[in-house]
């Protein structure tokens, strides 16, 4: 049986469209705000939501998501509360939802219990930025047994055998990190990760989504040329942090338009 995530990518592919994946830190500023932001993001044109699990030590994140994590934790966000948010969303929406979180809190919760509870709540997968392919073995097995997606990563430095191994076991979509660094908006030459995506495409049909750095509709379109979708985090979270909800949604809307215009 195919999953919400697989169906979404299949549907987009059929329509010749690119996936717009929006990252939102769960609990920033609170659960109700997150639920509202996800609903509005979907209305504005997001295809998939990455729900950030705030962590005390987010080593792959730049200043914006670090700050959002601090705020969310200060307001008491926890993993069980994130699952409540997912359940709430599922009452009205079937938008694919994947969690993005550092592995310690998931490990602490119990990985298998997490997958079980996450599936029951309606979460479709997990992106764990501090679990590279080599460390994912056991988690991959458990996830596969439940039909839960554990996302793999490729970067400009992923080559050779590691690329093949990663592609061979990919599920959901492959998170393609656009450049050396951490999350946050910056100018990036997307042709670099584009070449890596082309190489990955030789090994797998699993959808590819490019993330890191994308802050404008133009950048979204430029990145999307090399993949099946784009992931936008800091640009949206920055606006939400600043209390500019409408601006955040307008940005999502404009990215949607830019993607649909560039790829019809």
């Amino acid at each position: 049986m195919s999953t919400r995530l697989e169906n979404k990518f299949a549907e987009l592919k059929q329509a010749g469209r690119k996936a717009l994946i929006i990252y939102i830190t769960a609990g920033m500023p609170d659960a109700a705000g997150t639920i509202e932001a996800i609903r509005r993001a979907e209305e504005a044109g997001a295809d998939i939501i990455e729900l950030g699990l705030p962590f005390s030590d987010p080593m792959a994140d730049g200043p914006v998501i670090q700050t959002a994590s601090v705020v969310a934790l200060k307001h008491g966000m926890t993993l069980p509360k994130v699952l409540e948010i997912v359940r709430e969303i599922r009452k009205t929406s079937q938008i694919p939802l994947v969690a993005m979180g550092y592995i310690n809190q998931v490990y602490h919760y119990g990985f298998e219990k997490f997958v079980e509870d996450a599936m029951a709540a309606g979460l479709d997968g997990l992106i764990a930025p501090d679990v590279p392919h080599e460390e994912a073995g056991e988690m991959r097995k458990i996830s596969a047994a439940y039909g839960f997606h554990l996302m793999e990563f490729i970067t400009p430095g992923t080559t050779g055998e590691r690329m093949e191994d990663t592609c061979a076991e990919a599920s959901g979509f492959i998170y393609c990190v656009s450049n050396y660094g951490v999350t946050g908006v910056k100018e990036i030459d997307y042709s670099i990760i584009g070449k890596v995506c082309a190489e990955a495409r030789r090994h797998t049909q699993v959808p590819l989504a490019i993330g890191f750095g994308i802050g404008t509709p133009e950048a979204a379109a430029a990145a999307a040329a090399h993949a099946d979708g784009v992931i936008v985090g800091s640009a949206v979270v920055k606006r939400l942090l600043d209390g500019q909800k409408d601006e955040a949604m307008a940005l999502i809307g404009n990215m949607r338009k830019a993607l649909d215009k560039a790829f019809q």
Partner: peptide
């Protein structure tokens, strides 16, 4: 489990993929 750099069950390489080639 990745057996590289393990002391019993402890250790490993829990880092972003971007760092793996450097490690």
């Amino acid at each position: 489990m990745n057996t590289k750099g393990r002391f019993g069950k402890f250790g490993g390489q829990y880092v972003p993929e971007i760092v793996m080639p450097a490690l």
